[in-house]
Simulated assay, not measured.
Amino acid sequence: MPVIVVSVVGTIAGLLIAGVGLWRTVRDPRGFLAYGVVALGLVLAGVGFSGWRYEAGDHLPLLLLIGISLGVLLLFNLLGYPGLVVFLIWSGVTILRRESRTLGNGLALLAGIGLLFLPGTLERLAPQGEIRDDPWYMIGYGVHTFAILVVAYFSAVFALFLIGSLLYRWRRSSTRPSAVVVLGSGLIQGEVPPLLGARLRRGVEVQRIFTPAPVLIPSGGQGADEPRSEGEAMAEYLRDELGVPATQIQPETESRTTRENLINSRALLGSKHDPITVVTSSYHVFRAALLTRRLGLTAHVVGARTAWYYLPSAILREFAAVLRDHWKVHALAVLAVLIVAVTLAVVLVPAMAWSP
C-alpha cells in the first residue's frame, strides 16, 4: 500500500478518534480516559497529515512536527524537569513546616527526591557493554525497558489526570441544583478548621447564585478523635458564622468517606437523578467528579481555594487514590508493559547481537 494512502487513512482515523474523545468530554467531562483518546487521535492525525504532505512534496508540516516535538523535549529536560524537582522539594519542605508531619503531606517532598534520582537510577539499570544474546544481558535489557515503559505510562496517566482536572474545573454549569452538598474534611478539637471553612464559604457562594436557594447539605460523620460529627459542626458554622438560615440547612452526620458523603446526602433528597452541586477543596474536585459518575449521580463539582504549598502533596494524594480506585485497569496496563519488555528482550536483543 502506498505511503500516502497510509498517511491519509491515519489522518482520517486520528481525526475520528479525536472527535469521539471530544464528544465524550463534552457529553460528560467526568473522566480522563476521554482526554487520552483526544490526545491519541490528535497525535495520530498530526503524524498522518505530516506524512501525507511530505509524500506530496510539502515538507513544512513534517518539519514543524519534528521541531515542536524536539522543542517540547528540550524545554522539558532543561527547564521543566529540573523546575518540577525544585518546586516539589520546596513545596514539600514548606508544607511539613506549616502543617502536620504526615506521610500524605510528605508526598511532594518524596516525589521531588524520587524524580531527582530517577534519571540516574534508569541509567544504572541499563545493561552495560556490547550487545550480547546471553541470558543476563537479556534480563538486564528487559528490566531497563520495563522500568522506562512503566515510568512513561504513569507519567502519561498523571498528565491526563492534570489535564482532566484543569479542564473540568474550568467548566461551568448553569443548571439549578436541588441541593449543594459540602464535603467534610475533619474537625480540629470539634471546630471547623480553615480548609473546611473555605469549603463552606464556597458552598454559600454557590447557593446564593440560584433563586430559590437550594438546600445546603454539610456532610460528614464523627471521627474517632472528634467530639461531634462534622455535619453538625459545619451546620453550626453555616448558621453562626455565615448567616445561613437554619431552614436552608440539612446536615448529614453519618458518613465516613467521600463515597458515603455522596450516597447519604443523595438519600436525603428526592430522585437520584435530581441535579446536585458538590463543593470540596480545589485539589479534590476531579476525583469527587469521577466518583459522582461512578455512582450514577447527576452532579457538578466545584472547588474552594487551597493554599499553594498544600497543592502538590494533595494532588499527588488524589492521583494515588484514583490509581487505587481503578487498580485493575492499571494492573493490566503494567502487565501489558511487562509482556512488551520481555518480548523485546527475547526477540530484539538476539537480532541486534547477530546483526553485522
Rank of each mutant, 00 (worst) to 15 (best):
S7P: 01
E226R: 04
V20D: 07
S69P: 01
Y153M: 14
A299K: 02
G243Y: 08
Y309E: 06
V182S: 09
Q248S: 10
L187Q: 03
A333Y: 01
L160D: 05
R305Y: 14
A267V: 01
P350K: 03
T280F: 03
V5H: 04
Y54P: 01
I276N: 02
V322Y: 12
T145L: 05
Q222L: 02
A56F: 00
L335Q: 10
I95V: 14
V72P: 10
N261E: 13
G36A: 07
L70K: 07
L33G: 04
R239A: 10
L242C: 11
V85Y: 06
R317K: 05
G92N: 10
P29R: 08
R294Y: 13
I276G: 00
E260S: 04
Y168S: 07
Y310D: 07
G31S: 03
P82N: 06
V349Q: 07
W308I: 09
V342R: 02
A39E: 01
V329P: 11
E226D: 04
G10A: 12
S7L: 01
G92W: 06
L323M: 13
R305P: 06
L162R: 09
L167H: 11
L323F: 14
H273S: 14
R169A: 12
L110R: 06
G19A: 09
G71I: 01
H326S: 10
A331L: 14
F319G: 04
P227G: 02
L116N: 05
R202Y: 14
R305T: 12
V182R: 00
L125F: 10
L167Q: 13
P251V: 02
Y237G: 00
V143K: 15
R201Y: 01
G19V: 08
A289F: 14
G21K: 08
W354L: 11
I315K: 00
R266N: 08
E254F: 06
V47G: 03
Y137C: 12
A213L: 07
V3W: 13
Y141A: 12
R53M: 11
P194A: 00
W136N: 11
A267D: 00
S265M: 05
L167A: 14
H326F: 15
S178G: 15
M1K: 03
L200A: 04
L242T: 13
F87D: 03
A13D: 11
E241R: 10
E205M: 08
R171I: 13
G48Y: 13
Q128W: 02
D134V: 01
L291I: 13
V38D: 02
L295D: 05
V337G: 08
E230D: 05
H326Q: 11
V278Q: 05
N261H: 09
L311Q: 12
I4M: 04
T211V: 00
S219W: 00
S313E: 02
R124T: 10
R259W: 11
P119V: 06
L311F: 03
W90T: 08
V301D: 09
L122Y: 03
E236C: 01
A320C: 06
G203Q: 08
R324P: 02
V6T: 11
E226G: 03
S91D: 09
R202D: 07
S173W: 12
Q128I: 14
E260Y: 00
L160W: 07
